[in-house]
């Protein structure tokens, strides 16, 4: 964390947000599995989903400490956890098993979109390996 990190309130809010992925995943896997996920996922998929959700603890620490590169790396995992849940809810809504989950479906899609937006916002600041390779080749050509 440096003097030039984002404001404290922003880091706290984002840290709490990311931590909720860990808590949600823990609740889902160890305490009470959502019916939609129980219907859609087999045990291996459930374990993978748990790992994706668990990455939230790394992201929360990174957000709190202002380590934007680590946060950038963990966002796709959290997005994967969210999208798997979206798929599971879509399944129960579409099959008429539980149409009341429609609200959760829209909220989860909103969460996925916010995560994606945050990832692209950070991505703008970074050079991808391919982009670097291209730059290096251009440098050689000059």
């Amino acid at each position: 964390m440096t003097k030039y990190s984002p404001p404290l309130a922003e880091r706290i809010a984002r840290g709490i947000g990311h931590l909720m992925f860990l808590l949600g995943g823990t609740w889902g896997v160890f305490i009470a599995l959502p019916v939609s996920v129980a219907i859609a996922a087999d045990p291996i998929q459930l374990a993978i989903w748990g790992v994706f959700m668990g990455s939230g603890v790394v992201a929360a620490f990174a957000a709190w400490r202002g380590l934007y590169l680590i946060e950038y790396a963990t966002i796709p995992a959290m997005a994967a956890g969210t999208l798997i849940y979206v798929a599971a809810i879509t399944n129960v809504v579409a099959t008429g098993e539980n149409p009341g989950s429609g609200l959760a479906l829209f909220l989860m899609i909103a969460l996925f979109s916010y995560l994606t937006a945050r990832w692209f916002s950070l991505n703008q600041l970074l050079d991808g390996p391919l982009k670097l390779l291209f730059k290096r080749r251009q440098g050689l050509d000059e």
Partner: peptide, 11 residues
């Protein structure tokens, strides 16, 4: 998204 995570870690 698992592959994307790996790509993001490398980046």
């Amino acid at each position: 998204l698992g592959s994307s995570t790996l790509a993001a870690i490398i980046t």
